Deep mutational scan, measured.
Amino acid sequence: MDETGKELVLALYDYQEKSPREVTMKKGDILTLLNSTNKDSWKVEVKITVNGKTYERQGFVPAAYVKKL
């Protein structure tokens, strides 16, 4: 869990989004878990840094590609 009590997951593999509802992640990324009720895909939040500014983006990733921490 992070400092706000949200559950975290670790990306086990790289994943490139295939639709606007998904998010891209790299192996080793730590993501905030938002919903894990679907056995196939979990909703997560990723933090992306562009030019020194951090943005948050929500979307789905394959459940088999992440592990709860």
Rank of each mutant, 00 (worst) to 15 (best):
M1D: 13
D2L: 14
E3Y: 13
E3P: 13
T4K: 12
T4H: 14
G5D: 11
K6G: 10
K6E: 09
K6I: 12
E7F: 10
E7W: 12
L8I: 08
L8K: 11
V9R: 00
L10S: 03
L12S: 01
D14M: 04
Y15P: 03
Y15R: 01
Y15F: 06
Q16Y: 14
Q16L: 12
Q16V: 14
Q16R: 09
E17W: 06
E17F: 06
E17L: 06
E17T: 07
S19Q: 07
P20Q: 09
R21A: 13
R21L: 14
E22P: 06
E22I: 03
E22K: 04
V23T: 03
V23E: 01
V23I: 14
V23M: 06
T24N: 05
T24D: 03
M25E: 00
K26S: 07
K26W: 07
K27D: 02
D29S: 05
I30F: 05
I30S: 02
L31T: 01
L31N: 00
L34H: 02
L34Q: 02
N35Y: 05
N35K: 05
N35F: 06
S36P: 04
T37N: 12
T37G: 09
T37V: 09
T37C: 14
K39I: 09
K39R: 11
K39E: 10
D40M: 11
D40F: 13
D40R: 10
S41E: 15
W42L: 03
K43Q: 11
K43V: 13
K43S: 06
E45R: 10
V46F: 08
K47E: 07
I48P: 00
V50G: 04
V50W: 07
V50E: 10
V50I: 14
N51I: 03
N51T: 04
N51E: 10
G52I: 02
K53S: 10
T54P: 07
Y55P: 00
Y55W: 10
Y55I: 14
E56W: 15
R57F: 08
R57H: 06
Q58F: 06
Q58E: 09
G59L: 06
G59D: 01
G59M: 06
G59N: 00
F60M: 07
V61R: 00
V61D: 02
V61E: 00
P62A: 05
A63K: 06
A63W: 02
A63S: 14
A63N: 03
A64N: 13
Y65L: 15
V66R: 01
V66D: 03
V66T: 01
K67L: 10
K67P: 04
K68E: 05
K68A: 08
L69W: 06
L69C: 14
